[in-house]
């Protein structure tokens, strides 16, 4: 996952001329292409191992709320994806020759919020796509259209941060991300039960 993510950043960085005008324009998009694709790789595997070995039923038989299983899986996926992102970030900054000044924490905040939204819905969908014939293909088809607000917010906010815009410009995007995160964590928590039953 990490290697894949780094690879995307590296390949795109040398296809663009360093220091050209477009690099800065394209950088946020490339960063989030790398993040979402590698995140997708991780999410595809959230349930596949347990469904294939049948141990998922062992967990489902446990006397716990199914929502707790959802939250556990989501937190797990989040940690993986966030670590990958944090490791990729320095390479991204170096390869694209970016100057973040004191905006580094803002970028981390955006990554944090967007990743929550991504794994919140992704974990739910991954529990579905694991039962489809074409697992790896189905997840992006389901996830990308629903993820539009998150991707749009993340890319634009990252763009603003790279331009060293003021905090107020990013605030609107943060609102959308927070609204998305809250709405979909709650909804996924409530509907997860329907997804995992036989």
């Amino acid at each position: 996952m990490l290697i894949f993510c780094l690879l995307v950043v590296v390949i795109f960085s040398f296809t663009f001329d360093p220091g050209s005008e477009y690099t800065k324009e394209a950088a946020p998009g490339i960063l989030w292409v790398a993040f979402t694709f590698s995140g997708m790789l991780g999410l595809n595997r959230t349930f596949s191992h347990e469904v294939d070995t049948g141990s998922i039923h062992g967990i489902l038989l446990a006397p716990i709320d199914r929502g707790a299983i959802y939250l556990g899986k989501t937190i797990g996926s989040f940690i993986f994806m966030f670590i990958v992102e944090i490791f990729t970030l320095p390479f991204f900054i170096v390869l694209f020759d970016l100057n973040l000044e004191n905006h580094f924490l803002q970028l981390v905040t955006i990554i944090f919020l967007a990743t929550i939204g991504f794994v919140a819905v992704g974990t739910l969908f991954s529990a579905m796509t694991v039962h489809t014939k074409t697992r790896e293909l189905m997840l992006p088809i389901l996830l990308f259209p629903v993820m539009i607000p998150v991707i749009l917010a993340a890319v634009n906010a990252t763009g603003s941060i790279l331009n060293l815009d003021e905090w107020s410009k990013i605030l609107g995007w943060i609102r959308i991300l927070v609204a998305f995160d809250l709405a979909f964590i709650v909804l996924s928590y409530l509907t997860f039960d329907f997804v995992v039953e036989e």
Partner: peptide
């Protein structure tokens, strides 16, 4: 069941998509 859950998620997503694009 899956389709029903996806439809509920999708329906809630639409207004958020709208506002994020309008933004």
């Amino acid at each position: 069941r899956f389709a029903a859950v996806f439809a509920i998620i999708g329906t809630l997503d639409i207004p958020i998509v709208y506002f994020s694009i309008r933004w």
